[in-house]
Amino acid sequence: MKLTVNPDRRAVLASLGSLLTLSMAGCAAVPPPPRRPDEVPPTSIPDHARLMYRAMPEERFPIPAVDLTKLEPRFYRQVVDYPTSEKPGTVIVDPAQRHLYHVQDGGTAMRYGVGIGKAGFEWSGRAHIAYGREWPVWTPPESMIARQPELARWRQGQPPGIDNALGARAFYVHEGNRDTLYRLHGTSHPETIGKAVSSGCVRLLNQDIVDLYQRVRFGSPLVVLA
């Protein structure tokens, strides 16, 4: 099954002339939304979550602790029951639930909260994770620079770092031998997890993408549910 794009996205692609050019634009950082009145009270955050999303000064670029008042508890990383016909090692993205699963043995999976493509930029189907990069460089496509001229300074690539649009790690998604230009990548904006905010890329908290990076083997199947 090939990756599919909804009709709204096809209309956008027609106007821009290229799926590959547009899809990479989804990896750009977005302005964080305003604080919600229902954000998690600090007193209700469990200690294991604080430890899991601690600061990571040991990284090449130190990663700050996640502000867990901006993250719904259902998006905390955790092992869950997940019976599936997909083999262990498969990565499954469920856009409707805003979750990513790394399938394990015994009918379980490690589950992560994610941010996904906004309306008109969704995608689904089967592909594979060709390779990954630690602290990758991000280069915005020309179509995105045309919409956001301030990004022209990164035409030759945004250097790696905590403010890089791809965050601490990135997985590069291929369909056959073709780079789809979709990415699974990190973010330092917890308020975007659980939201439809990108133009196709799937984002995880930096702490979660670092954890996932240690688990996923390059070449692993990727399934994005419709």
Rank of each mutant, 00 (worst) to 15 (best):
H174I: 00
P221Q: 10
V93W: 07
Q97T: 13
R77Q: 14
A130S: 12
A11F: 12
P57Y: 09
R98C: 09
Y82N: 09
Q158M: 12
T69K: 04
D67Q: 02
G200T: 07
S199E: 13
R9I: 04
V210S: 08
R133T: 03
R54C: 10
T108V: 10
N206H: 04
P159R: 05
F75E: 10
G200H: 07
L68T: 05
G120V: 04
S85V: 11
A11C: 11
P136N: 09
E134M: 02
Y213D: 14
M144I: 07
Y53F: 09
G219F: 10
S220Q: 03
L166W: 01
I162F: 05
R153G: 05
L68F: 03
L222A: 08
V210H: 01
G89L: 06
A29D: 11
R217Y: 06
P140Y: 06
R98D: 04
I209L: 08
S18P: 03
Y76A: 13
R126Q: 13
D67C: 03
G125V: 07
M144R: 14
S44N: 04
H99G: 06
M110E: 10
I116K: 03
G132P: 00
E122S: 15
E134A: 06
P160Y: 01
G89W: 01
S85P: 02
T108C: 07
R126V: 11
P221F: 07
R178L: 12
D163W: 04
Q158F: 02
P221C: 03
C27P: 02
V30T: 11
V173H: 05
R35P: 03
M144F: 14
Q97P: 01
R10D: 09
P73D: 15
M110P: 00
T43C: 00
R155K: 15
D163G: 01
V137H: 00
F218V: 12
H174E: 08
Y172V: 00
P159E: 05
S188P: 06
D179N: 15
P57T: 04
P141W: 02
R203Y: 03
W135S: 03
A226Y: 14
K195L: 12
S23R: 12
D211W: 05
A165T: 00
Q97C: 06
G117H: 05
S15M: 11
V5H: 13
L222H: 10
E72M: 14
Q78W: 02
G117K: 02
V216G: 04
F75A: 09
G113Q: 02
L13G: 05
L166G: 03
K195F: 02
D8L: 10
S199Q: 13
M144E: 15
V202Y: 04
L71T: 06
L166I: 01
V40C: 03
D105S: 03
A11D: 14
A226W: 14
P32V: 09
G219E: 10
S23D: 14
T43H: 12
V223K: 13
G17A: 08
R10G: 02
K70T: 11
S23C: 06
G194I: 04
A127G: 09
I63E: 10
I145V: 13
M56G: 00
T4Y: 08
H48M: 10
V202Q: 02
V30N: 10
E134P: 01
W154A: 07
G219H: 11
R155Y: 03
G115N: 08
R60C: 04
P190T: 08
R74V: 11
R54I: 01
L100H: 01
P37F: 06
P73Q: 13
V197G: 08
Q148M: 10
R35L: 12
T69Y: 09
R203N: 01
G89V: 08
D179K: 01
